[in-house]
Amino acid sequence: MRKSAIYKYLVFLGILLIYPLFSNSSWLAIGTTFIIYSIVALSQDIVLGKAGMFDMGHAMFFGIGAYISAIMNTVFNIPILWAIPVVVLISAIISVLMAMPTIHLRGDYLLVVTIGFNIIFQQVIKNNVFGLTGGPNGIFGIERPSLFGFEFSSDLSVYYLAFFVLILILIMIKNLETSAVGRAFHYLRLDNLAAQCVGINTRFYRLFAFALGASIASIAGVLFAIQYTVISPESFNLMQSILFFTIVIVGGMSSIPGVLLGTFLMFVLPEIFRDFNTYRYLVFGVMMILTMILRPRGIIPKKFGIIPKYLLKDK
C-alpha cells in the first residue's frame, strides 16, 4: 500500500478513535451504527463492487446475523459473542444455497432474485416462524456480551467493540485486494469469459464472494443486536438493502474510501439534517441523481494499476 493511502486510513481511524470524546449519547449511537453500516457496506461491496454481482438483498444477511444471535442469546442463553462463529457459518451456507441455482443469471435478473430473497426473509421473520422471531415487534432483551471478565455494558464499550471489528475487516479487505482471490473477483467482473479462458473458475469465485459478503454482513448483524439489544424486521428490509446498494454505487465500486464516504453521506448526513425532517429526503434524492450525473463511477472511483514496487525497480 502506498504511504499516502496509509496516512489517510490512519487519519480516518484516528477520528473514529477520538470521536466519542466529542459526542453525546445519541451521537455516540449514530457513530456506532455508522461503523456497523460501514461493515455491511464493505461486505456488500465484495459482492457488488468487486465480484460485480447485482445483489440488492444484502440486508437479509445483516438480518440473519442479528436474528440468529438474538435467538441464541434470548432463547438459549448463549453469550452473544459465542454466536459469531455459528452466525458466520449459517449465513455462508444460506448464501451458497441461494446463489448456487441463481448465480448464472444475468445482472438484472440476479438483482430481482436477491430482492425476492430479502422479501421472503422479511415475511419469515414477520410471521414469527416457530415462535422464535417475535413477529413484527422483533426480539427484546438481548444481553450485552462480556469478554475475559470485561462487560460490554456501556454504549461506549460497544462503540469500541464495533471499531475493533471494523479495523479487522479493513485489514482483511486490504489483504483480499492483494491476493489471488481478490484479483479473481475483479477479473470475473470485468470480463467473465476472458477470466474463464485464462483458467479462472469463475463460478467458484462468485459463490465465494457471496459467502464472504454474507458472513461479514452477518457479523455486523451481531454487532447491531448488541448495540440496540432490540431488533425488529424493519432494520433488515428491502429499503435497507437498497441503502447498502446505493452506498456502494455512490461511493465508488470496490473502492474502500468510496464505500466509507458513501456510508457517511447516505447514513450520517441525513441524521445531521434531522431538523429538516420533511425536506431532507427530497433533497437527498436530488443529490443522488446529481452525484451519478457528475460522478458516474462514484465519488471516489477505484484506481487500478497499483502493483508491487519490485516490478518497477530497474526501469
Binding site: 437498497i242 446498494f245 446505493t246 454505487i249 455512490v250 429526503y281 427530497l282 437527498f284 434524492g285 436530488v286 443529490m287 443522488m288 441523481i289 451519478m292 450525473i293
Partner: peptide, 10 residues
C-alpha cells in the same frame, strides 16, 4: 439505476 432510485425518492 441509482439515479432512478433517487428520482423515486424525490
Amino acid at each position: 439505476v441509482v439515479s432512478a432510485l433517487g428520482a423515486g425518492m424525490v
